[in-house]
């Protein structure tokens, strides 16, 4: 139980580090630990890769020129 909590705590810190939400002190601590703990280093890399993968693989439907035109037309109509 305690191990699981500790693991979750480390994963939470890895998440926050990659989200740039860790304080400079906590960030230094995490990176120093990663220098001596290959598992932690791998965990950080895996998490980084996973996020890059999600970001590039997600479907981003393109915006049709008609939608932009319709928005502009509606605004113009409202202003007239």
């Amino acid at each position: 139980m305690k191990d699981r909590e500790q693991q979750n705590d480390i994963r939470q810190k890895v998440n926050m580090y990659l989200d740039r939400e860790l304080s400079p002190k906590d960030e230094n601590e995490l990176l120093s630990k990663a220098d001596t703990d290959p598992n932690l280093g791998r965990q950080i890399n895996d998490e980084k890769e996973f996020r890059n993968y999600i970001k590039t693989a997600i479907n981003r439907p393109s915006v049709s020129p008609d939608l932009i035109k319709s928005i502009r037309d509606n605004i113009k109509r409202r202003g007239d």
Binding site: I58, R60, P61, S62
Partner: peptide
Amino acid sequence: HIDALNTFAYH
């Protein structure tokens, strides 16, 4: 920001 909004709206 229309592209980002469209992606958010789509999902």
